[in-house]
């Protein structure tokens, strides 16, 4: 590992340490690398807040109320 990479990692860690912890304001995220577009999340959402568009699940943050049903049902662990 070069000195530049080490320095970069150190700066990144210091920056992360200075951040405050996560809150609900973040909402849920979809990892599009892992999402297979199966639509299971869409079928369990009672708020019409998630839908598969062009092969990826997309969350509408103004409708999502964090019930976590999509997190539980996702077969790939792509929503967190």
């Amino acid at each position: 590992m070069t000195r530049f990479t080490e320095a970069l990692l150190l700066v990144a860690l210091l920056l992360l340490a200075a951040c405050s912890p996560p809150t609900e304001n973040t909402g849920l995220l979809v990892d599009s690398d892992q999402c297979i577009g199966c639509g299971e999340c869409e079928k369990v959402c009672p708020y019409n807040a998630i839908e598969v568009v062009d092969g990826d699940a997309v969350i509408n943050p103004s409708l999502c109320r964090l019930c976590y049903r999509c997190v539980e049902i996702c077969p790939k662990g792509a929503i967190y």
Binding site: S20, L29, Y80
Partner: peptide, 15 residues
């Protein structure tokens, strides 16, 4: 993967 949120003056770990 690391996500950070910038909420006003606060920088927050997101996911």
């Amino acid at each position: 993967c690391q996500t950070l949120d910038f909420d006003g003056d606060e920088t927050r770990l997101a996911a």
